[in-house]
Amino acid sequence: MSVLVYINSEKIAKNSFEAVTYGKKIGSVTVITNGNATDEDLAELGKYGADKVLVDRNFEGTDSQQVTRLVAKAANSLGASTIVFSNDLVGKAIAPRLAVRLKAGLVAGATQVPDEEGKIKVNVFSGKAYGYVKVESTIQIISLLPNSIQPEETGQKATVENFDGEVGTAGLTVKATKKPEGSIPLPEAELVVSAGRGLKGPENWGIVEELAETLGAATACSRPVSDIGWRPHHEHVGQTGVAIRPNLYIAAGISGAIQHLAGVNGSKVIVVINTDAEAPFFKAADYGVVGDAFEVLPRLNEAFKKFKASN
């Protein structure tokens, strides 16, 4: 079976390796990409099972219309029966367009490979349930939820070839790009330290940031905290904010309202710190500390520092 995997080569990140690994479990993998990655970097995708990488360096991948034309052309020339994306911000803008262009069913946010009946598991109801989806068309498009499978090194180097996607003109122009230096983007973070209204005020976030720095974690917050402007909007996690699925989520001074849980319940391990032993968040937690965040967070920071020093 011929599988085409799109990756966003502006940054070949872990979710790109996940997408290639996923594709390899279904068939033989060709990668299609655009942008400026070097041949050497692209050849590395072979490690995760790609045989070949097709690259169009003539345009940047900022316009979903152009990227869709590129992937559609590659899919047609290859006769691909499965096309895989990472369900990150890039994949979300392109995979549905491609579904219309190829009239192919899209499974958005897959967390597993298809089972024997071809059903694919996805999260629904903001992570409160799972759905099993079957594609009815001959071509299937799957966008893989980041951090749901581990990259597996199975191969060597891939061959890299130039590919002309004949992508036409862009429908939008980019005026400026802002990427805060140093901070770890939340949706990709494997470790997240988060705090809520229990922290009382923005001036108290130092203890949250220090712990995050020790761990190399991203910081997040509950909705009211970003609504009142204590923290930036992009840190708001939950049903109406960002949905995350880190390996470790540490939540201090957050009550654990159902809308907050909806954005974090995909986390592998949850640690909750709250003065109120009855806080609903403890029901969703793996480890709980009933105590004052102002005392517990600095202590936890010291304990992690000690652990890091001796490991």
Partner: peptide, 9 residues
């Protein structure tokens, strides 16, 4: 966008 924001027209 992944890791930040973009101004577009």
């Amino acid at each position: 966008i992944v890791g930040g924001s973009q101004e577009v027209e």
